[in-house]
Computed example of a mutant assay.
Amino acid sequence: MSDRFFLYDDTTQAKTRFVSFMGEEQRHDLALIYSDRHYGKVIVLDMLSNRFAIIGQDDLKEEGYLEFAFGISEEKAADLLDFLNEIIY
């Protein structure tokens, strides 16, 4: 068996915020993970669909990004976009 080659193996402190809210189209149950990794972006986990994305303000400005990342319709993404615009700087 060959030696394992790690690109990195770090342990960091992270803050996790759990949020649940009802939008116009659907309920959103999210876990938001803040850490020093990912250039200040937030790991957003959708606990209902088991999908996640690493999101920053630049990603929120990209048309269709949330729809693609979370596999949701434009209408459902609108609620999520409104919320994420409030908390991601």
Rank of each mutant, 00 (worst) to 15 (best):
D36N: 15
T12A: 13
G23C: 11
F83H: 04
A53F: 06
A69E: 03
Y8N: 12
H28P: 01
D59H: 06
V19H: 01
Y8C: 14
E24F: 06
E74C: 09
G40A: 04
N50G: 11
S35T: 11
I33G: 10
G56M: 07
I55D: 03
R51T: 15
I43V: 15
F21L: 02
D3H: 14
E24G: 04
I72T: 08
K41L: 04
S73L: 05
I33R: 09
H38C: 10
G40Y: 06
G40S: 05
F6K: 15
F18Y: 13
G56Q: 09
M22K: 09
M47Q: 12
H28D: 00
F52N: 14
L30H: 07
T11C: 11
I87P: 01
N85M: 07
A78Y: 07
K61N: 13
R4V: 15
D59N: 11
K15Q: 12
Q57N: 11
T12S: 09
L84N: 01
D79R: 00
D3N: 15
F52Y: 14
N85S: 07
S73G: 13
T12V: 15
D3P: 08
L60Q: 05
S2L: 09
S73N: 08
F70E: 12
E86Q: 03
I33H: 07
V42Y: 01
I55E: 01
D46Q: 05
Y34H: 13
K15L: 15
F70H: 06
D46A: 00
D59A: 10
E67G: 05
N50W: 07
Q57L: 07
T11I: 14
E63R: 12
E86N: 06
H38W: 10
Y65I: 08
